[in-house]
Every structure is written in structure tokens, then in C-alpha cells.
Design a protein around this nucleic acid. Structure first.
Lengths: 184, 184
DNA sequence: ACAGAAGTAGACACTACAGTCTACTTTTGC
DNA sequence: GCAAAAGTAGACTGTAGTGTCTACTTCTGT
């Protein structure tokens, strides 16, 4: 019966993402989920292990969503459209499985944990790398410079959508990529 | 004698930026600065007021640096170069007045404070808006679409430089802007 | 010179944090 | 059917968090 384990991860992920990791205590996760403290410490060695589990869960969920989002695109122009229209849906909180938009969970978590060598920071870095690979796989064009372009705009859009509340940042990215005469 | 006030803001800013706001306690700021608790609460109503003061200080410092960095550019190409080479210096921690690079203080702070209506989140948003205006003032080209382009790449570069440790992200932005045939 | 502002040390109150523990009950796999 | 695993409540420890307070000292502007 590791349903409790799943409930703990779900609850923690929601609370961590909607607020922040430092601001959410173990006791809050417990009272919201209705699970006993002993059970939590039975499944996780401590808060950090729980944080890593939530990162893993979010990583899976995000990659799954992105894979679905990018599938079916017939050419690179469509991949770009699917990507940035998908991001726009996310920013407007129209993607139920990603929850109410509050920026990138991995970027936010990196901001809280300054030690770049910590397992948490490493996981966040790895997530970004894997998302990059996912986009690369969807594209026919394989040069890294073009990927840099797409990924930098993607990061800029997520950051601007959250910090500046510019929910249409991803649409601007499409406009940029369309207006630009660099072929893709 | 509000030198104490300044020392408190300096110490708090360094600690907040190098770590995170939740992870740094008042007592730590006090012991590092060597200032008495009563003095802190004499100058600031609480931690939030101190946080706002550090945001203000960082805002001033960053805008000052950016203004200097962009001044002297003779055309828009040079503005873009000054901006992104400047960012590269920052990412490599070669700008003493900005401290050891640990991402954007405002983006990081936004990640910690989820209430978008809080004074802290509002200040962060305002900072980004003012930086945008500063870049706009430096450019001859005045269309918002081009500004969007530059600012989205800028945000993407800062985020990638920090989370993915891609310290040359800003150089990639220059490559993108140079390779693109959209005139600027 | 002196009033008032700014500073000091550090004890104190109170809350919240992560994590431990005991004693007990339920679920589940074989 | 039963042993082991997973679960329960919640008291408890010890630390650290913000913020208050008293009693005293130093600085500073007019």
C-alpha cells in the first residue's frame, strides 16, 4: 500500500509549487493530506527526500505533457507552434495536469537552494537538459544553435510570464520566430 | 547615524542573494553584521520591510550598472553587444558590484513569495519593467516587438545561466541576434 | 551643553520547524 | 491464517524562527 506515499508526493508537490519549499512545513503537508507523521518518515528519510520525490513527479508529468504536446507536428514550424501555444495554455492555467501556473517548479526550486552541487539543484539542471532533448527529438533541424534559440526563448517566456505576469510571452516568441527570416 | 541601516541592508542583501530569503534568519543577519537586534527593529518594522529595502538597494545597483553598461553605444548593434557582453560578465561573476552570480535576485525572490499582490512581488515586477524601459531608452529602434525580443532573450539567458549553469547563454543571444536577418 | 535620537547587550516570549518515539491497529502477501 | 509490512495518533525533543522588552550608553545637531 504505497498509495499513502503517492498522496504525500501529490500533496507536497501541490503545496511546494503553489507556495515555495521553505515556506511549506512537514506539518502542513501532514495536516492537508491527513497522513500521520510516522508514515511520512517511514517512506522518506526527511524533507529533502520528499522534495526530490516531488521534483521527480513533476519532471515525469511535465515531460509527459510536453511529449504529447509536441507529437503529431508534421514539420518544424508546427513543432514550434505546438510548443509555444502549449506554453501559452500553461501560463493561462489551462492545462489541468500542470496545475495553476506559478512559473517553472525547477527554476523556482533552484532559486531556493543555492548550493549548485546539491542533489536538488542537480535534478533541476537535469530536468532542463531533458526538456531540451525532448524538443530536439521533435525537431527535424538538429543544429544546437537553433535549439539554443528555442530554449532561450522558452526560458525567457516562462520567466516573463511568471515574474512580469506577461501571460502572452510565449505568443511573442512565435511572433519573433515567424518575423525572423532565419529559416527553420 | 544611519550607517547601521546601510550595513544592515548590505549584509541582508548579500545573504539573501547568495542564499535565499526564507533560509536566512534575522539572527544570522545580526550576527554577521554585528548589529544589535533592537537597532534592526528600530530601522525596520520587520523582516518584510528589510526585504523590501534590499530589493530597492539591488534595484538601484543593477540599474546603475546597466545604465553605465549601455552608455556610449553608438548604434543599436552596439547596445545589444554591450547588453549581452555585460550579462556575460555578470554570469561569470566579473562584475564586483553585482556580487557572485546567483541568478536574478528579483526572479529568485518572486519564486519564494507566491502572492502576486504582495509588495515584494510587485516590486520585482516593477524592477523588470524599469529595466525594460532602460533598454528601450538606449535603443534607437522603438518598436515594442523588438524590445520583447531582446527582453525575452535576456530573461532566458539569466535563467539558463543560473539553473543550467550555462554561463555563456548571453553569448548565444548575440549569435542569435547576429545570425537573424531581422534588421536592428 | 544637552536633549533626543540612535545605539548597545541580551534575556525573553511565543511560535514553528524537522525529526523521534511509543504503543497500538490495519492491511496485505504468501 | 498469520507474520510482516504499513499504517495510526500524537506527545515529545531540541533547535531556530520573529519580534519585544528593559536598562543602559553613545552619538549628534542646534
Amino acid at each position: 500500500m504505497n498509495t499513502k506515499r503517492k498522496i504525500l508526493i501529490d500533496t507536497a508537490l501541490t503545496l511546494f509549487y503553489q507556495n515555495s519549499i521553505y515556506s511549506v512545513g512537514i506539518n502542513e503537508i501532514l495536516s492537508v493530506s491527513g497522513i500521520a507523521k510516522k508514515t511520512l518518515y517511514h517512506h522518506f528519510s526527511g524533507k529533502e527526500a520528499l522534495v526530490l520525490a516531488t521534483l521527480e513527479k513533476r519532471d515525469q508529468g511535465f515531460q509527459q505533457w510536453l511529449t504529447t504536446q509536441l507529437s503529431g507536428a508534421k514539420n518544424d514550424t508546427e513543432v514550434i507552434h505546438q510548443l509555444f501555444y502549449g506554453l501559452t495554455d500553461w501560463f493561462h492555467s489551462r492545462v489541468p495536469e500542470l496545475g495553476d501556473f506559478r512559473g517553472c517548479f525547477f527554476t523556482n526550486t533552484s532559486a531556493e537552494f543555492s548550493d549548485e552541487k546539491s542533489a536538488i539543484a542537480q535534478y533541476c539542471r537535469q530536468h532542463k537538459q531533458q526538456v531540451r532533448q525532448l524538443i530536439k527529438q521533435a525537431l527535424k533541424r538538429q543544429d544546437e544553435a537553433f535549439l539554443d534559440w528555442v530554449c532561450l526563448l522558452k526560458e525567457g517566456a516562462i520567466s516573463s510570464a511568471y515574474v512580469s505576469q506577461d501571460l502572452d510571452a510565449a505568443l511573442k516568441c512565435i511572433a519573433i520566430l515567424t518575423a525572423s527570416e532565419v529559416k527553420y
